[in-house]
Amino acid sequence: MGIIKASKLVFEYIRRDEEGNVDSIQTAVDHVDLDVNEGDFIVILGHNGSGKSTLAKQLNALLIPSEGTLWVEGKDTKERENVRDVRRTAGMVFQNPDNQIIASVVEEDVGFGPENLGVPTEEIWKRVEESLTSVGMLKFRRHSPNKLSGGQKQRVAIAGVMAMEPKCIVLDEPTAMLDPNGRREVLSAVHELNRKKGITVILITHYMEEAVDADYIYVMDEGKVVMEGLPKEIFSQVEELKRHRLDVPQATLLAYELKKAGLPLPDGILTRQELAEELERCYVNYTK
């Protein structure tokens, strides 16, 4: 069993009227199966309201499944006594950095998590230093978070989660509010954690470019997993993605359009380097 495993996971938002009778039921997650191995970089794609965030919140027991079972490191999140362990295994980073930073100095903010876990002071400072280093923010340790850029704040938020030494981090649209620079900073910090420390990453995003380097992609729509596979497999299905209100990276779209117009290009081109190489090959053959 992988570090995260979900079996027929269901989550329903139940709205009740004043007397407490059920008014409406909205199924946000609908029989989802997941199996994530330790060290994987997983991306979950899906449009607004497709159930991604509801799924994410269950991964660290902020929400408890209505039906089905979710195991985090083999622990069923439905059992109350497991909640603490589940949250230590899977840390969570949200969209808006301003909602996640609580201290007035960067290093104190990062230390808040381990302090709460009862880690000895000396160890806390060691972890603060390590996690700020791992996201490239050590030189800002004594700065005030409100003077940082969005990308820097988000990296501090990630360091705050890292200081609790989780095995897995779940990021719910961490770049949605950032400019291109901030997006790049956060993405490379997350990839670094995955590569160097073997942290399992579950990244939820709207930006197709961020999914290109994933080990595995899940696409959600109406609470269900509607597509899953390697980036190459997912992004070669342009029409299917569009049906789910999604998109493909620009290089993939151009390759798809060129192929439709008759150029002999392979499916599943993800980067502009690949496309340039393939086009060069076509061109050499053509001019021969």
């Binding site: 449009h47 949605a176 509010m177 998109d247």
Partner: peptide, 8 residues
């Protein structure tokens, strides 16, 4: 368009 999905 901040925060919207690609179709949005």
């Amino acid at each position: 368009t901040a925060g919207l999905d690609p179709k949005g």
